[in-house]
Simulated scan of single mutants.
Amino acid sequence: MKLKLLTLLIIIGACTKERNEKYEITEEDRMHEEQAIRIVDEAVSNIDQTLLDKPNKVASPVSRLLASSEEEKEISRFVVSTLYDKKPSLVRVISDGGIYHASYINSEGERRSTKIQFIGNNIRWGNSEGRWRDHPLDEQLSYEINGKKVFIKITYSSGEESTDEYQL
C-alpha cells in the first residue's frame, strides 16, 4: 500500500511539471516523499490499533487487502470448514492455477471436493465437479485478515450473515 501511495505521489508530482521540462528529484521532493511515508505509516498504525481495540468484531477490509498464495491455500481449508462444519485439520487442499480444490472424507467414506477462487477478498466457490455458486440466491463468501486471524463471512440471500474466526 505504501509503495502504491508513493508511486501515486510521484506520478502526481510529475504530472504537475511542464511536459517539456525535464523532471529531476529535488531535496524538497525527497522531504515531501518522507513526509508522505510518515503520514501513511501513522494512518496504517492507527488502523491496526483500531482493529486491535475491537477483537470481537470482523476486521475492517483495510486490515489486509489480499492474502498470499500460502494464505489462500489455508483460507481454502477454512472455507470448507465453515461451509461443512469440518475441522480444518481434516481438509486437504491442492492448487490448480489460481483455483484451489479443498476436500475431505464424509461420514460415508466418500471424498467431497470444493473448488475455490479468490477475487480480492471475495471467495468464489462450488462443488469441484459442479457449477460455481455465484447465483444471487447462493451464499456469498468473503474473508478478512487481521494479524494472524482470518474471518470467513457467509452472507445468505436473506441478508443474514455469519462469521467464523480461524488462526493462520
Results as ranks from 00 to 15, higher is better:
116 I>Y: 00
119 I>P: 01
165 E>Q: 13
86 K>G: 04
64 R>V: 01
72 E>C: 15
83 L>P: 01
89 S>G: 10
140 Q>I: 00
87 K>S: 09
90 L>M: 08
90 L>P: 00
164 D>T: 11
82 T>I: 02
71 E>C: 12
63 S>H: 07
124 R>A: 13
35 Q>G: 09
85 D>H: 12
88 P>W: 10
130 G>W: 03
167 Q>G: 07
155 T>R: 15
56 N>C: 04
119 I>F: 12
57 K>M: 06
148 K>E: 02
53 D>V: 08
156 Y>H: 14
159 G>I: 06
63 S>V: 02
49 Q>W: 10
2 K>G: 06
69 S>F: 08
159 G>N: 06
91 V>P: 02
71 E>P: 12
27 E>N: 12
27 E>H: 12
22 K>M: 06
78 F>Q: 04
148 K>N: 11
44 V>Y: 06
27 E>K: 14
120 G>H: 01
87 K>V: 02
143 Y>F: 15
113 S>R: 06
36 A>I: 05
78 F>L: 08
72 E>V: 14
153 K>R: 10
99 I>L: 02
133 R>W: 05
6 L>N: 04
32 H>C: 06
107 S>Q: 08
27 E>V: 14
70 E>S: 14
138 D>A: 13
43 A>G: 11
158 S>Y: 02
104 Y>V: 10
56 N>S: 08
28 E>Q: 11
79 V>C: 11
5 L>H: 11
167 Q>V: 12
107 S>H: 08
69 S>D: 09
120 G>R: 01
54 K>H: 09
82 T>C: 06
150 V>S: 01
23 Y>M: 11
128 S>G: 03
160 E>P: 00
12 I>N: 14
30 R>W: 09
141 L>N: 03
44 V>P: 00
48 D>Y: 10
56 N>G: 07
161 E>I: 12
22 K>C: 03
41 D>M: 11
85 D>S: 14
78 F>G: 03
95 S>I: 05
168 L>M: 15
21 E>M: 09
4 K>Q: 13
32 H>N: 10
162 S>Y: 07
